[in-house]
Design a protein around this nucleic acid. Sequence first.
DNA 1: TCAGTATTAGGAATATATAACCATTTGATT
DNA 2: AATCAAATGGTTATATATTCCTAATACTGA
Lengths: 202, 202
Amino acid sequence: MAGTQPKTLVYLVDDDFSVRDSLSLLIESTGQAVRCFESADDFLNNFDPDQAGCLILDVRMPNMTGLELQEELARRDYAIPIIFISGHADVPDSSKAFRAGAVDYMEKPFDSEVLLKRMQEAIQKDLDTRVKLAEKRKLKKRLSTLTPREREVYILIVKGLSNKEVAKQLNISNRTIDVHRSKIMEKMEAEDLSELTVMAMH
Amino acid sequence: MAGTQPKTLVYLVDDDFSVRDSLSLLIESTGQAVRCFESADDFLNNFDPDQAGCLILDVRMPNMTGLELQEELARRDYAIPIIFISGHADVPDSSKAFRAGAVDYMEKPFDSEVLLKRMQEAIQKDLDTRVKLAEKRKLKKRLSTLTPREREVYILIVKGLSNKEVAKQLNISNRTIDVHRSKIMEKMEAEDLSELTVMAMH
DNA sequence: TCAGTATTAGGAATATATAACCATTTGATT
DNA sequence: AATCAAATGGTTATATATTCCTAATACTGA
């Protein structure tokens, strides 16, 4: 089938070939697909933003470091969970990574079991994030189909106002609110007020 | 006035007197109240769980370490934001602290400005958490006043079912649902269905 | 210019929710 | 035994929401 992707993909970025080789073998032994990159730029030019998974990232690399790549991804609003691997103890780097949302920051050599556990955690985190993001986008898309006036009415309705109160607030007739309301329910694909209220909370 | 507390309080736990002395001076210079403890046990025996603020915590201490204190507080469901200060670079400790929710892990000597910034961030985080927690408790308390049957009806109502549908589902008359519904709205202190729905989402 | 959409509004019929009365049954507490 | 809360149900009336019809005005894009 065209466009078929593995369910999840682990990106592994490290300038050291032997690390890429051994880690990719380790990860693939669990049945998890991996794609290796030898530099941050290599990753930036070839990763697929729509692919769910996680990023295992070396801290020290020539040109762009792992932390710089983390910053760049944040600038692009690409929130893939990152597990840092570092050959040298560096508390400030670790703090920076974690404060920017890293899943973990592990020193080499590290326990393979722990890495695989973190990897699973990171992948699950990404899947959860993507589900929520998809929901949000769907709602945003529906919201964008509302006319300006409908949006005004929408806001007042989910605040809990009755049609009558909305009519008074906007100084137009009840009948008009009825029309707006039914259009809103239709466009937002809501069955009832509860659904609409839940949508409005995101 | 009896029971008056400073708005926020910074707990400072470090076995080194000179650190307690200089840091408490630094923090108090910003107008922020501080309370010092020379050990984790000293803190555990004397802190006030109802006091909003944050915890600045030394990692290495005799008896109970900072990380052990963090674990103990987690066991007690006491989620005060923690800023770790450490004299020795230790990436595994840093990772452990962050993964357990620490706000930061700073190496001595550190920039005073950064510490004060983190402190403000941590205090704000605690205030936010406490507001949300208070909301949750309020709703939980109201929920606990519902009878079992009312709770059943409540769940179906916030799912978006109409009274009629709830009646059919529970196989009782519409009238009874009317009664339950009005009791529920009264007990939950909700003005309208929207409010009830919002409450149910927490 | 024509077609479509947005915003406005009325009437009428139906469905649903809310409030104010009522009463019965059951089970627990005093 | 008396009392109370919980759950049940009925009647009546009013308020509100939903759906069906209608149509005027204004603005926008083909």
